[in-house]
Computed example of a mutant assay.
Amino acid sequence: MRESHSDLDPSCGSATVIRSVSSRRHSVRISCVFCAVLTGLLWLLLSRGEFLSQLAAQDASTKAVPKQQKKRYVFKENHDPNGLGKFYMGREIAQVMGFPAADWLERPEREEEERLTELIRALNLQPGDVAADIGAGSGVLTLKMAEKVGETGKVFAVDIQQEMLNLLEDKIKDRKIENIELVLADETSPHLQPESLDLALMVDVYHEFAFPFETMLELSKAIKPGGRVAFVEYRREDPKVMIKLVHKMSEAQIKREISQPEFGLKWKETIKTLPKQHIVVFERPLPE
C-alpha cells in the first residue's frame, strides 16, 4: 500500500510522467468516444435516408395499384341488382352463385337444358390430357372430364368456395376416383402451375370473376403452348335465352376481353351446338 501511495506523492519525480500518460489516455478516450458518436450519427443519417427511400418506394407501389385498378374497373351506384355495381370493359360483373344454390347445379333437367354430354364431347378431350374445371362447383362437369382424360390424365377442380369443394370431395371418395385434384382458388388467381394445362374450362363462371383481368392473367400462364381455354356462356345476343342479363355474355364481348395481348391467347373457334350457350375457345399459340 505504501508503494502505491508513493506513486501519487507530488514530491516523487515519476508523478509528472504518470499524470502525462494519464492525460494522454484521457484525451485518447475522449477522441474515441467522439469518433464513435460521429460514426453513429452518420450511420443513423444514412440508415434514415435508406429507410425513407424504401418507404417512399413502398408508398409509390401501394398507390400505383389502386390507380391501375381504378382505370380497369368502374363502380356505379345505379346498376343491375344482380350485379356488383363493378364494371369491366363495359359490362357489369355478376354476383357469384353461392354454395346454398349448389342443388341447382345438380338438377336432373340440366342435361336436357344444357346438353352437358354434348359440351364435353365438343371439347375433344383425349386420354392423358391435363384439364381444369374453373369454378367447378359441385363437380358435375369435373366428373365427366375425369372420365374423358382417363387414368393417365388429370383434372383440377378449382373453386373459391371450400364448401363446393367439400361436396365434390365426398363424391370422389365414394367413387374412388384418383385423377381429380381439388384446388382452392382466390379472387385473383386459380393457383395452378405454369404451363400445366391442356385445357381450362369455364362454364357460366367467367362473368362472375370479381377480378377478371388478374384472374385471366394468372390462368393464361397455366396454359401449355398449344393448350386451350374454353368459355361457355349463355348467349347475350339471343333474346330467347331467358337468363338474367348480367349472367349472359356475347361472343364479341368475350373476344374483346380475352384477346388482350397480356394474356397471349388467340381466338380459335366458337362452337354453337348447345341450345342456349356458346363455347368460345382460345388457344395459346405454339412457339414459331
Score class of each variant (00 low, 15 high):
M1D: 05
R2C: 12
E3N: 13
H5V: 12
H5P: 07
L8D: 09
D9R: 01
P10S: 07
P10A: 01
S11Y: 09
C12Y: 12
G13W: 12
A15H: 09
T16L: 10
S23K: 08
S23Y: 05
R24A: 07
V28L: 06
V28C: 03
S31Q: 13
C32D: 03
F34Q: 06
F34S: 03
V37W: 01
L41T: 02
L42H: 04
L42C: 04
L44N: 03
S47I: 00
R48A: 01
R48L: 00
R48F: 04
E50D: 00
F51S: 14
L52P: 00
S53H: 09
S53Q: 09
Q54M: 08
Q58A: 00
D59K: 15
K63C: 14
K63D: 10
K71I: 09
K71D: 13
K71Q: 06
V74Y: 05
V74S: 15
F75L: 15
H79R: 08
P81H: 10
P81E: 14
G83I: 11
L84M: 15
G85E: 08
G85W: 07
K86N: 08
Y88G: 07
M89E: 15
G90R: 01
A94H: 13
F99T: 07
L105D: 10
E109Q: 12
R110E: 10
E114P: 10
T117G: 06
E118P: 04
I120K: 07
A122F: 00
L123S: 05
A131L: 04
A132F: 07
D133E: 13
V140G: 08
L143E: 03
M145V: 04
E151S: 15
E151W: 06
T152S: 13
A157R: 14
A157V: 11
Q162K: 09
E163D: 14
M164R: 14
L167G: 06
E169Y: 14
E169G: 15
D170Q: 09
K171D: 12
I172V: 07
I172W: 07
E178A: 13
I180V: 15
E187A: 14
T188P: 13
T188W: 12
S189H: 14
S189F: 12
P190R: 09
P190T: 11
P194G: 11
A200N: 03
V205P: 05
Y206L: 09
F209I: 13
F211Y: 15
L217M: 12
K221S: 05
A222L: 05
I223L: 03
K224L: 00
P225F: 01
G227K: 04
V229K: 04
F231P: 04
Y234V: 04
P239G: 03
P239D: 02
P239S: 03
P239T: 04
P239E: 02
K240A: 07
V241M: 08
K244V: 10
A252F: 02
A252M: 05
Q253W: 14
R256E: 10
E257P: 05
E257F: 10
E257C: 01
K266G: 01
W267D: 03
W267M: 01
K268G: 01
K272A: 01
L274A: 03
K276L: 14
Q277T: 11
Q277A: 07
I279Y: 03
F282I: 04
R284M: 11
P285S: 02
